[in-house]
């Protein structure tokens, strides 16, 4: 059973990893946190779930729709909460994006109601058994899609000109600007990609949770915050490792202790990490920390 629980934990971790990637991209681009990303994930997931159950479209199409919705919402968030907000005030984009999150949740409640929505299972009946280990269809989808998206993101950032531009802006926006990189457009692109990841994470979490509710947005943001702090702010690989770690820790705590300890352990872990190693577990780069 321990092995099964470890796998459960890793699966939980992969959904955390996507949302952590999403946050970390924005931290890289702007040294700011987009607090509406949790709601972005939620609205994408709700729409995806509705498309699947009401319009009867396949998971692949619904997933692509969720990505697109995430991208659009994140783009709008950028324009509302970052583009025209003075960079001098650190609290301004935080409050502004929290405001956008509030609007998203309320709009969703208005339009589709406060009920949770079922996410129909994909590959129903598929069940792979390897010795004591059992993986069902949904879990297979989550694992492969999350892995694929992470690999694609790495490829994009490291192999394409736009990816290079994003990394450039993330390292030093002024220098990138001087070198002729269209900084504002690159930042918008970063937001859009981060929204796509949030959308993916939303629907995949919905798949593992079997439902999506309009009230999970803020919750998602908090989980993501814990993950990226543990992994080191802006550190993409650190975030992924921390996400898997938290997934496993949460799962094992729930399985062998109790759910109350789950949050307690994660918060204590993050607290101790911050005090002992403010740069996060997996990074030696304190540059970003100083700026955020």
């Amino acid at each position: 059973m321990l092995i099964q629980q470890l796998v459960n934990g890793l699966l939980l971790g992969t959904t955390f990893a996507l949302i952590a990637l999403s946050f970390n991209l924005v931290v890289g681009a702007l040294d700011r946190l987009n607090f509406a990303l949790g709601e972005t994930a939620m609205v994408s997931a709700i729409c995806g779930a509705l498309f699947m159950s009401q319009l009867d479209i396949t998971f692949v199409l619904a997933f692509l729709a969720a990505l697109a919705i995430g991208a659009v919402v994140a783009g709008i968030t950028f324009l509302l909460s970052f583009r025209f907000v003075s960079a001098e005030y650190h609290t301004a984009p935080i409050l502004s994006s929290l405001g956008v999150g509030l609007v998203i949740t309320s709009l969703v409640t208005r339009v589709v109601g406060s009920d949770q929505r079922r996410v129909p299972s994909v590959l129903e009946g598929v069940r792979i058994e390897i010795g004591p280990l059992r993986i069902v269809g949904d879990q297979l989808i989550i694992l492969s899609v999350a892995a694929l998206m992470t690999v694609l993101l790495y490829g994009f950032l490291n192999r394409t000109p736009w990816g290079t531009a994003i990394r450039g802006v993330s390292d030093d926006p002024d220098m990138a600007g001087l070198l002729g990189v269209p900084v504002q457009r690159v930042i918008l692109l970063t937001f859009v990609i981060s929204g796509t990841l949030a959308g993916a994470s939303g629907l995949l979490t919905g798949l593992s949770f079997h439902t999506v509710s309009p009230f999970t947005g803020f919750e998602t943001t908090l989980t993501a915050l814990m993950v990226i702090v543990l992994g080191g702010l802006g550190n993409i690989t650190g975030g992924v490792v921390a996400a898997l770690m938290i997934g496993v820790i949460e799962t094992l705590t729930v399985a062998y202790l109790s759910a109350t300890y789950r949050d307690l352990i994660v918060f204590l872990l993050v607290g101790i990490t911050l005090v002992a190693r403010p740069q996060g577990l997996f990074t030696r780069n304190t540059g970003v920390v100083g700026r955020v």
Binding site: H90, L225, F267, L268, V275, P278, V292
Partner: peptide, 26 residues
């Protein structure tokens, strides 16, 4: 414990503190 940290980390540690207090009271 926390005031030496940067704005964001202070925010997170105070937030985590509030959640821990809530869990303990629960």
């Amino acid at each position: 414990i926390a005031l030496r940290l940067t704005i964001l980390y202070l925010a997170i540690i105070t937030f985590a503190f509030a959640e821990i207090v809530k869990i303990l009271l629960d």
